[in-house]
């Protein structure tokens, strides 16, 4: 097996007595498309935020291609090529779709090349007709796409997507699944999801979080039919 692109060792985070993340050892192979699931409050978003410098871990380590990034600032991690779509859309609402993407692309590319990149990414997320619209005026699903598109425009090596299909219609969800598979051709991807059908359609391997620990890590069919997973998910998976 090739060296992992991302690895965490004994990663931990406590919020006022609550162990949101409890000594997690996690490893991801380059090119993988992994799904991260778990009931509400399992610690999935907290985990992502620690990988991207948005939360400082209390203990443990994060390694990106073997380099220790545990204490790195958010912008340094962004520079090293981890891109994240946060659970709550994190976009520039007062700017147009094109301006949002330009800000992302301009970080790595000169002006003309950035313009080409923006056009290309706009086409991929099918937002060309919206290019001039303010992001704040778009529907929820479209704003999520803008955020994904911003992440992609930065040409990251590792893409973290926190609930990319939340609040989307059935067609939008299908389109998002396709988009994620496309992104995975160029980058390693981890997606947090609740929609079981969606998970089956994109992932081969699933990691299940529960109370800040990894409960199960298996291929998708095994994981989703695992008794323990069903138990912790009861009430959620039925929906």
């Amino acid at each position: 097996m090739s060296a992992p692109i991302l690895e965490t060792r004994q990663l931990s985070k406590t919020f006022g007595g609550v162990k949101a993340i409890d000594r997690i050892d996690f490893s991801l192979a380059p090119g993988e498309l992994r799904c991260l699931i778990g009931p509400n409050g399992a610690g999935k978003s907290t985990f992502f935020k620690m990988l991207t410098g948005q939360h400082r871990p209390d203990g443990g380590q994060v390694l990106l291609n073997g380099q220790d990034i545990t204490a790195a600032a958010a912008h340094e991690i962004g520079r090293l090529g981890i891109g994240i779509k946060n659970q709550i859309p994190d976009v520039f609402d007062g700017l147009s779709v094109a301006e949002n993407l330009t800000l992302a692309a301009r970080f790595i590319l000169p002006k003309a090349a950035a313009a080409r990149k923006v056009a290309e990414v706009l086409a991929r997320v099918q937002l060309e007709p919206m290019a001039g619209r303010l992001v704040g005026e778009l529907a929820h699903g479209q704003r999520q796409w803008v955020e994904i598109a911003m992440v992609v425009a930065r040409e990251p090596i590792l893409v973290l997507l926190d609930e990319p299909s939340a609040g989307m219609s059935v067609e939008e969800t299908a389109r998002t699944a396709e988009l994620i598979r496309e992104i995975n051709r160029e980058a390693t991807v981890v997606a947090v999801e609740h929609n079981m059908q969606f998970i089956r359609s994109i992932a081969s391997r699933v990691t299940v979080f529960h109370r800040g620990r990894i409960l199960v890590e298996e291929n998708v069919d095994k994981a989703l039919s695992d008794r323990r997973v069903r138990d912790v998910y009861l009430g959620r998976s039925a929906a």
Binding site: A73, H75, G78, I84, D90, V91, F92, G94, L103, I108
Partner: peptide
């Protein structure tokens, strides 16, 4: 300008600017 657009970005959402890799 490129510099100014980042400033506008900071007004809108400082965290996103940082996540894109800009040192605010």
């Amino acid at each position: 300008t490129g510099f100014g657009q980042v400033l506008v970005g900071l007004r809108e959402n400082r965290r996103r600017v940082e996540l894109l890799g800009y040192d605010s």
